[in-house]
Structure formats: structure tokens, C-alpha cells
Nucleic acid binder design. Sequence first.
RNA 1: GGCCCGUUCGUCUAGGGGUUAGGACGUUAGAUUUUCAUUCUAGAAACAGGGGUUCGAUUCCCCUACGGGCUACCA
Length: 508
Amino acid sequence: MNSQQKVRVRFAPSPTGGLHLGGVRTALFNYLFARHHGGDFILRIEDTDQTRFVPGAEEYILECLAWCGIKIDESPVNEGNFGPYRQSERKPSYRAYAEELVKKGHAFYAFDSTEELEEQRKLFPNFKYNFENRLSLRNSLSLSEEETQKLLAENHPHTIRIKMPDNESVYFDDLIRGRVSFETSLLDDKVLLKADGMPTYHLAVVVDDKAMEISHVFRGEEWLPSSPIHILLWTYFGWKEQMPQWAHLPLILKPDGNGKLSKRDGDRLGFPVYAMNWQDPKTGDLTKGFRELGFLPEAFVNMLGVLGWNDGTEQEIFSMEELIAKFSVERIHKAGAKFDFEKAKWFNHEWIKNTADEDLLPQIKAVLTENSVNDGQFSDEYVLQIISLVKERLTFVEDFWEQANFFFTAPKDFDVSAIKPKWTAEKTQFFNEVIAEFSGLAEWNASGLESHFKNKINGAGLKIGEFMMPLRIMLVGGKFGPDVFQIVEKLGKQEVISRIQYGLDLLN
RNA sequence: GGCCCGUUCGUCUAGGGGUUAGGACGUUAGAUUUUCAUUCUAGAAACAGGGGUUCGAUUCCCCUACGGGCUACCA
């Protein structure tokens, strides 16, 4: 690695829809590497293919990275010295580069129509546009100079293809995998510039990475097979010295079965695959995201950061700052990792526990609003107390309602069957006395209430166990929730009395 | 089919010639919580197979098997 080189790294998503786990992790690893080395992290939008470009996707990507806490130095919105950052806005330059390669003899004009190539593929099952057959196809290598010029002058539809060497060995040293080599005789003449004038990924990535002075490229392993094309391009342009270092990240796999994780798997297995909700503007289909499911960005980033990487210790919980400080390419795992939603949930649980109540407050208040609790009906101080009481029970922020709804609204359904069979007149009388005594109490705190309640039971020669559950059910509605006297304290005298009264009415 | 990459508990992984092969998620059992969840403690659980090299391979090499990726005028 060239240590003098300024680290400059880019994330280059294609704005074709929501950002899935693999995409965010690629962004994250690029980012961690850049920041670890004090370098730049830039965003380049790869909207090369107009037919698949989806409106709104670029904004979505920006929002997603911001949510994750990934800060961008240069992008289409904040600009920089290497713009434009949208592929489509760089279109004019690509053709010139492709033609430069033609002049140098490393590429050629190909006039074959899609239909003609289809025909070839039908004739020869393993058809490849390469050194063996390119002379029998319609291109600037097989045609005379005059014919070629004539077709070009006529604006005959054509592509520009790379002229893959007959028999060479191309290799490079991957930061993660070590030396990887390919035989060019097995590769084909890939299209560099499409008939519509847009570059393919192969051309665009090389030209732009050069123009943007990219030093390191972290991308998914699915790009490994096309890397020799990119190496060759860097060489043919005469830029080999400035070629970035490559690092091919292991893939994120389906939790069950085999293969790359896809959006469909999330739908099928019931967990999100996108970072945030994504609504397809064409179909209107909504794909649920981690953010909306109730993931904390810290948990999401933590979970992705250690999927295929670890620091060599037994630490599992990392903040973004720690990930940046400890990140190292050498410690990236080579093999693909199956995504485990259970573990992802555990990360969120841990992060909710570790997050200060105050920092959770805005999200918790949003949950309350969603559940028709009027804003302002309860003080922040009250909500904060409830958060600290139930925080450790939450896997998702949304779980708050399930765990704590009875603090905000009287339960509607009572698990009467749990206490009714063993109900007695004696118990009714006991609770009536409790109501009377509670209303006269000056002090109202959990420990005082608990001893008062228990002393009363003991004094009457009754069993504590017989009364705890009825009290809980009258206050909460069911057999769950935090310490019952904490609930009594937080609910306040009036509410407690009214709920016991209501419970008594139900039982008699 | 061809090419490329990979393979340690069910899953994510640590380790890297001599280890009781460690941790986490999940799971099982117990404790705590007079509820549920949390939490705590303990347990079960892995080096794909075969050849080398070596005094000794899970570790290094080769082969096989298996898995994955790519094989478009998609990225």
C-alpha cells in the first residue's frame, strides 16, 4: 500500500430503489476505512442506466446514510472539487475515453444488433464475444476502415467494446483476499459504451475513480469476476500508477438456504432488508425498513459493522467512533455471512438499554402519539420515569406501548379468569379497605406502599400470594409488567383507587 | 458448463503447527423477579472429507466434496 497516498474513498450506489443491508454495509466499510485513515468519503450516484433509475431514490440514499451517522464530504448535494457526482451528468466525457481506447487499439466499435447477438447465442450455447469470433462479427476490427467510417457517419447504432487480449494473465492483490488472477482467454469483449451513449459500469467506474482520485475501493464480492476488466482499463488508459487498491467484501447471505440476501427474503422471513422504509413510486409497494421497525441507528450500524469484521477481542458492542478507531482491513472475514435477525434484535436490545432515557424520549413520545396518547397529557418527567422502568424489557422502541400502555391509559381487557375462580367476599372486603386506607395516605411511594399492603395482609393472617396477582390485574389488566408497587406509585392515588374500584365491580 | 471466491458449534465468529478449540446470538436447565420480561449461573453444541509435509496438523500444501458469486448494450 502506498502510504503517502491520501485516502479517498467513495460509495457509489445506483439509485434504483431502497438501500439494502449489503449496500449499507459497503457504504459503512468504505466510511470506516476513510475515517480511520483520516481520509475523504464521497458519494457518487451511479445513475448510468436511465431505464432503471427511480425518482426519489437518491434522496432516500442520502437520508439513509445520514440516519446511520455516515457523514459525506462530497456529494451531489453539497458538491466538492470533483463533481459532478451524478453519473448521468458526466455523460459527455465517457465517449471520448472509450474512443481513446479504440485509437490505442484496446477497444473497437461493434455494430452487431441485439438480435444478431441473440442469434449467435442460440447457435452457440456458450457464446462469448471474444478473440475467437470477433473477426466474424460486425465491428471495426472485421470491417474495413471505410466501412467503419461510413457506418459511424450514418450514425449506425453501435457500442464500444474492450478488446480482450487473446492470452494474458491479469492479476491484482486484493486487500482482503490476496492475489487473484484471471486468464484473459476466458474473458469476453465486454461493452464499455452502450448504444445510447451511456457507459457501462466498467467504463464509468474506472473513469470516475480516476477523475475523483479514489485511493481504495471496497465493494461486494460479486464484482470480483469483473475486476480484470477494470485492471485492464486502468492499464490501457495509462493510469496504472494511480489505480486504487481493491477490497472485495464478503456477501451477506440469506439466513436460511443459500444465496445472496434479497428483498424477497425479508418479505418471506418477516424481517426488514432495507435500512429505511422504501416505497416504490411505480408500484406503490412499501418495503419495511429497520428504522421504522424501531431499530436505533447505533444498533443497526453496530450489527452491520461486525458482520464480517471483528476487532479480535470479545467485544460485541461498538459505537461508530469505536468502529472507526478499531477498523482494519486485515480483520475482514473472507467468507460470506448469513444474516441472523435474532442477533440483530439483540444488538438493538443492548443499545436501547445503553441509551440514556433522555435520548430515547423523542422516539418514545412518537410511539405514544401513534397510540393516541395526546401530546402534553403526560409530562416528560413522567414519561422518563416510565422509560427507565421498562427500558430493559424492550427489543424495539415500539415495544414500549406493549410494555407500558397501562401507565397511560386504563386497561380495557382484564384477565379476570386468572383471579375470579378463587375470588372470595373476604378479598372484596380487603380491597375495599385498601381503597379507604390508600386515600388517607400522605406518603405515596413504592416501598412505603409495599410495606403498607403487605403488613395489612400479614396482620389479617392472610397469604400475600393471594393478593398480589389480583392487585396487578386490576392495575395492569394481565399477568405482566414491572414491579407492581412501582406501578402503584407512578399511577398515583386517584388512578389506583379508581382501577381497584373498577376491578372490584367486574369481580362482583 | 466455464471462470473466480470461500469452508471452525444451528448462526455470527476468535484462534493459527502442541489449546480442556474461546466468545456472542439462539437453545436447554437452574436462580432471581410472590407476574411476565430482563438479569445471573450452568449445560449441550464446531475445525467438510481424503492425501501429503511434520515428532505432531483444526492450523501449511494438494485433491475431492460442498457452498457462493459472475458468466447482459444491469449494477
